[in-house]
């Protein structure tokens, strides 16, 4: 059975790179561009999704451009941890001056609900291939 990932990213050029990386591993994927859509897909296909690969900074919902620079992805990471769904972060937090996000993600990966022990984190630059490789190995 083909492994299906949920990928969350708001920039079209990055989505294209993510799609290329997903295909290179022979996986399937569904894509969301904001937190509301991502949570909806996660809940709907919770039993079918192998793991979630998410950026950190994107809109909370499609119509809300004002919060695209906020780390809404952190909420999705927390939800995955609570539901014990593999999750990896593909972000460039230096670009967003968001080094403070490293700490909560380190803490979340030790949460008792999360059995995979690790949240792969591509933090300096978005490396979709490496991040997907790591989540597939969890």
């Amino acid at each position: 059975m083909k492994k299906v990932l949920l990928v969350v990213e708001d920039k079209q050029e990055e989505i294209l790179l993510a799609k290329t990386a997903v295909e290179s591993f022979g996986c399937g994927a569904m894509y969301a561009t904001n937190l509301v859509d991502a949570k909806r897909l996660l809940i709907q296909f919770e039993k079918n999704i192998f793991g979630v690969v998410t950026d950190l900074h994107y809109q909370s919902m499609k119509e809300n451009d004002s919060d695209a620079q906020k780390p809404n992805g952190l909420a999705l990471v927390a939800l995955c941890v609570a539901k014990n769904i593999r999750v990896a972060v593909c972000s460039d937090i230096n670009h967003h001056f968001s080094n403070y996000l490293v700490e909560p993600i380190r803490v979340l990966q030790t949460h008792q609900s999360y059995s995979f022990g690790k949240i792969p984190f591509s933090e300096d630059s978005k490396n979709w291939k490496e991040t997907i490789q790591k989540i597939l190995n969890l």
């Binding site: 294209l16 799609k19 994927a29 569904m30 894509y31 859509d37 897909l41 499609k62």
Partner: peptide, 13 residues
């Protein structure tokens, strides 16, 4: 609309 939105996001060019 959501189905079309999800498909639009997920299908490749």
């Amino acid at each position: 609309s959501l189905v079309l939105n999800d498909l639009q996001n997920s299908l490749s060019p």
